[in-house]
Amino acid sequence: MADVLKSTAAKPLVFMLCLAPMLLLVWNALYGDLGANPVETITHETGEWGLRFLLITLAISPLRQWFGLAVLMRFRRMLGLTVFFYACCHFMIWLIADHSLNFTDMVEDIIDRPFIALGFSSLVLLIPLAITSNQASVRRLGRHWKKLHQLTYWVTLLVILHFIWLVKADYLEAGIYAVVAFSLLLQRLPLRKWIFTKASV
């Protein structure tokens, strides 16, 4: 398994997997298979895939720590950029189809609807992360790089709230994502250290 992940073919393969949901959407769009409200389908699908890749990205370092899968670190940048890609598509379809590129309408929607403000803020926070995702930025920013990229945790919180807030009545799906997201965030807190210090006192 680890050998496969280390091979040179692994990266292009993972790249294709990252793009697969988008390719499927485009395919279905071309064949008129997106249901009665294609704009809604594309909006929901791109948003949900962005969230899924965000959770996968957040799972990388726990998987490394708990199962010694250090090799997964190779894919973290690509997965993070995939999140940004789906977030941009999600935003663009809203801007184009819902607001016909009308800037005033867009701003009004952000002001009037807290769940849209939350989604928009998440996208804005993702921009510096995408820009500084290259190797050169990692070197130049040094220890600040890690601090900056911990913004991902805040993005996760905002995205989960964005999802929960838009639900009309059925919280099941958003709730499942929330549980997964909070587990991934909670295990990052230095709980073990905290418990041990408590015990020694």
Binding site: A36, P38, V39, E40, A97, D98, S100, P114, L166
Partner: peptide, 19 residues
């Protein structure tokens, strides 16, 4: 009358892209 989830100023007619 504004709604916290959807702007009620516009609507998408099913079968169309723009509102």
């Amino acid at each position: 009358v504004n709604h916290p989830r959807w702007s009620q100023k516009k609507e998408r007619r099913i079968g169309e892209i723009f509102k």
